[in-house]
Design a protein around this nucleic acid. Structure first.
Lengths: 150, 150
DNA sequence: ACTAAACAGGACTCATGCGATCCTATATGT
DNA sequence: ACATATAGGATCGCATGAGTCCTGTTTAGT
């Protein structure tokens, strides 16, 4: 179905929830309660998001997590990348070369272009947009149109 | 990584390969040889593509498969949908209601918008584009801008 | 100083679903 | 009639996603 992993869905939920709350620190347990998600899983996700630099943490009593940047400056694409790695619709779009049909790899190049288009679509949506409740249609006006004239 | 299933990748390979060959009928085994893929898997995929109406088949000696429509009129999105079902980045984007975080489902609505954007990006690429070898950047000029003013 | 709260990191288990195969039935050209 | 194809379904194994747990480390408050 071309779907993101459930954990990634959770992660965007966590990020969106934090974007709602301006309070500096929210504990993992608190977020788990608010979103009705298993606490250990939430903890694990927040650690991953921390390593990716999307959230900052404060240890000890009264500590917790918070967005590392304003919600406006964090895209859905970044959250997905933090949990699942870079967007690459096909395996060989990464360029590992572990592709069984090396034969005609104009196909590979084309997949890379398609992946990038999807990436751009996901970059166009910020956490602030997710909280805004009124996301109509994605504006592609902000596309990084770089039609390299090879 | 937000990737399509390997079988879907195979399927687009098969379709692209058929787009290359103008001959009316190509057997499943022939395609398996050409793309270096396991024959039973290729057979299964072609059956699925047939049920989806993307390829037509001819039984018996000298039979095989062929594109149901000109390559120009078959999009990558259709091939993906034939194998994986409709594009829906998150589970609840389908609207099944089996979503554990029903709470704040402005999020759900937003995911649906994002999914549609991805869908549009995939619809913009045809099999003919895949064979054309020179897919630069995807043009979003053909967007179905329908900002429903709810 | 001591204790409780909270994050950090990793190992481990379990289930889902993808990927691959096989078998039988049906159609068609020689 | 026979060889060559597809049609459809059932089955099987395994990779990976998803969830849990354990052990450390840091910090605030008393």
């Amino acid at each position: 179905m071309l779907r993101i992993a459930k954990l990634t869905d959770y992660a965007t939920g966590l990020m969106t929830q934090m974007a709602h709350q301006p309070e500096r620190w929210v504990s993992a347990q608190q977020l788990a309660l608010e979103l009705n998600l298993p606490a250990p899983t939430v903890a694990r996700l927040l650690k991953q998001l921390g390593r990716a630099g999307l959230v900052v943490s404060q240890r000890g009593k009264g500590g917790g997590y918070g967005l590392a940047r304003p919600a406006r400056e964090i895209s859905v694409a970044e959250v997905i990348a933090a949990i699942e790695g870079p967007v690459a619709l096909t395996e060989c779009a990464l360029g590992d070369g572990r592709c069984s049909l090396e034969r005609d790899c104009a196909t590979r190049a084309n997949w890379r272009v398609i992946s990038q288009a999807v990436q751009v679509a996901l970059e166009a949506v910020s956490l602030a947009d997710m909280t805004a409740q009124r996301l109509h249609a994605i504006q592609f006006s902000s596309l990084h149109h770089q039609p390299r004239k090879a």
